[in-house]
Design a protein around this nucleic acid. Structure first.
Lengths: 157, 157
DNA sequence: TTACGTGCAAATAATTTGCAGTCCC
DNA sequence: GGGACTGCAAATTATTTGCACGTAA
């Protein structure tokens, strides 16, 4: 069972260091402030995930990348880590149909193009969704999030 | 392997009868015009799916309902039938995350509320999405569909 | 009759979990 | 040292497929 510790008390206030700009320290800091121990595996995954700008990955893809980087991490640990990162707010699960789960390193409020066939995801340039345009939620409920997926197909077909 | 025959030639032009209003004949006609043989199993499923207005179902739910109706249909056949219905345009798959696939009997252009926790789906009153508001698709691609999911959470939490 | 359909059981695929051993603080 | 973490293998869950048999046209 994956263990998800609570965020470290006061971590935000007393970060271990502030060598911003160095990817290694950045990842360590991300983990630290999230209350996750910077283990070898999590550092490696953090490196793969956050050092290259915004990404959309599946557990399988990350696993392959780790192996390509000669870092040995079991698939189970990758799943566990992805969920821990998600709970810590470092990642976001993306809701598209299809059997596999995608994780997005861009946790800001945004939406996606989904290319049919390849299942590739592309961040949308921000489209503003006016809350006033949205329908009223049923009684007792509030809107937690709006997710928009724009499916793309080859132009000629 | 599920076989999905092409729509019956000229079926639209020469429907077997036109007793609209009778659910039994309506389902039979739906299948007929879709080019699907009205077998006992498909008739039963069509009955469950289309006789009660718009519905959101999983294969599992349909299976339980069929058993509750004392109709014996294997789960494999339910999966096959759901996909055949979908290909025939009688159903639509809904893209939400989560492990199971939902099918919607409302195939018109619309969107959904998704209640967190129960995973219940609720059709949205039509919200117009202005095509002019949408971002430009990448070169060589066109927009096939826009899907909006509004996640709901209990108001107090 | 004969291709289309169906049920069953086995096969996949993605993901999760139990647990014994390892590592960080 | 002790709880947090990891790897592995087995377990789950959702879905698909192969194939022998059944059935609608």
């Amino acid at each position: 069972m994956p263990t998800v510790p609570k965020p470290r008390r006061g971590a935000q206030a007393v970060p271990p260091d502030a060598l911003a700009g160095c990817p290694f320290h950045d990842v360590r800091m991300k983990l630290w402030t999230a209350g996750l121990r910077p283990t070898r595996q999590r550092m490696a995954l953090g490196w793969l995930l956050f050092a290259k700008g915004d990404r959309h990955v599946t557990a399988e893809i990350l696993h392959e990348e780790a192996q390509a980087s000669r870092v040995s991490i079991s698939l189970a640990t990758i799943y566990n880590s992805l969920h821990q990162f998600t709970q810590a707010g470092l990642l976001r699960e993306i809701a598209i149909d299809g059997s596999r789960t995608y994780f997005d390193t861009n946790v800001s409020d945004h939406h996606h193009f989904l290319v049919e066939g390849t299942n590739a995801l592309i961040d949308l340039p921000r489209i503003a969704i006016d809350p006033k345009e949205l329908p009223e939620p049923p009684a007792g409920k509030r809107i937690a999030r709006v997710e928009v997926v724009i499916r793309l197909r080859d132009a000629e077909s």
